[in-house]
Simulated scan of single mutants.
Amino acid sequence: MSSPRLLSRSNFVLYASGTWRYLSLSTGAITAATKLIHKYSSNNIPAFGKEHTRSYQRFKKMDTPLDVFQGVKDRFHGVTVDGNQQDIADKAQFCEKLHKSLDFWRENKNRAIWFHVYKKQADWVPILADAGFDFHHARSGVVTMYIWLPKDESNNLPSYAHTLVGVGGLVINERNEVLVVSDKHAIAKNIWKLPGGYVEPNENLVDSAVREVMEETGIRTTFRSMVCLRHSHGGNFGCSDIYVVIALNPLNLELTRCEREITRVKWMPLDEYFCHPEVLDASRLFVRTYLDYQKRGLDFTCTNMMHALLKKEYQLYYVSQGKDGNQQVPKV
């Protein structure tokens, strides 16, 4: 459902202030945010490819003989071979080189051997399987197969990602109305819920909530607070599921329904929301939890951090004493 261009605009608005903390919902704030959005409109954003490609982590290349597959060694003494980096004429050459490589890796006491096999190399898959390789995971256009070489050590390789992550955007305006939608393809028809959806690859939770709310309702938002999360099992593709509720401040009030996925969208008064028969108890709990945080002056916030060793940015979510003690809490 996501659009790379929409995502880029959302990210810029969030990062422009250098923080995700509370932004007062004033006319000036709305005007400033709107200018930023127009400044970085689709006409000014570089074009993106239609297909999102996830990159694999890179490590140091190994020094290997010419008749052995060129790969990179990881810190666990494993080897990763990328099919796109290999010059193979046919299946016979691949099979011969594979067995020589396995002999070399065993003698070198390498542990896990990973092969990234792309769609154009699909005829490698049965050869790898016959040599003892198994499937680990697949992405669009590529499958990863592996073999565990040590005989005196049990296989302790981690499972591939087994949990899906979704977000719900809890948006309350100054009129004490909460933003709600009804999904076109919902299991239970006509249920009012928070707008939201799945987090995209390489997308932060807050960015995802901002994007989903914008796509489904036309409401532009900024981060206010984390609220809570729900963890369940047996979801799509047999995965577990984490659903994170994120409170957002609205920057506009005009609704634009996503006709593809949403049947209804509205601003619902809080007193109606808490007793409406088409609002689930869990959804009511999400809002009550957020209002309780505000009443007690708690700020479940988010800060950008940098990992000291990996030199990678990450987001830290934590509860602190709210700085905005003057914010009005809706009475219901």
Rank of each mutant, 00 (worst) to 15 (best):
A89Y: 05
Q86F: 11
I88H: 07
Q93D: 11
H77D: 12
T80I: 12
T80N: 07
F94W: 04
Q86H: 08
G78K: 04
N84D: 11
V68N: 03
Q86E: 13
D103Q: 04
F69M: 05
V81T: 08
E96R: 02
Q86P: 07
A92N: 12
G83L: 10
K73S: 11
L98Q: 01
A92P: 01
L98R: 01
L102G: 07
G78E: 09
Q70W: 01
D90G: 10
T80F: 14
T80A: 12
G78I: 08
A89P: 02
K97D: 03
L98K: 01
E96A: 10
F69V: 04
C95F: 14
Q70S: 15
G78D: 11
G78Q: 09
H77R: 10
Q86G: 07
F69D: 00
V79Y: 09
V72W: 15
L66E: 10
L102K: 02
V72G: 07
R75L: 14
A92S: 12
R75K: 14
D82T: 09
A92I: 15
F76C: 12
A92L: 13
V68H: 08
D90S: 08
K97F: 06
F69L: 04
L102Y: 01
T64N: 03
K91L: 14
A92G: 06
L66Y: 13
H77C: 09
F94N: 08
G83P: 12
F69S: 01
Q93N: 06
A92D: 13
V72E: 14
R75E: 12
I88G: 02
V81N: 02
V79N: 01
L102N: 04
D90V: 14
I88S: 03
T64A: 06
H99P: 00
K100L: 10
H77G: 02
K97I: 10
F94C: 09
L102I: 10
L98A: 04
D82W: 00
T64C: 07
K100A: 06
D87W: 00
K73R: 11
D87P: 03
Q93L: 05
V68M: 06
K100H: 13
D103K: 00
G71N: 05
L98M: 02
G71E: 09
L66V: 11
A92M: 11
A92Y: 13
K91E: 15
A89M: 07
G78W: 06
Q70L: 13
Q93S: 10
K97W: 05
K97S: 08
V81Q: 01
I88P: 04
A92T: 15
A89E: 08
K97A: 06
C95L: 08
L66Q: 12
F76T: 15
F69H: 04
D90M: 08
G83N: 09
Q93P: 03
L102P: 04
A89F: 08
V79T: 08
N84Q: 11
D87S: 15
T80L: 09
F76H: 09
Q86C: 05
T80Q: 08
D90Y: 13
A92Q: 13
G71T: 04
F94I: 06
P65F: 05
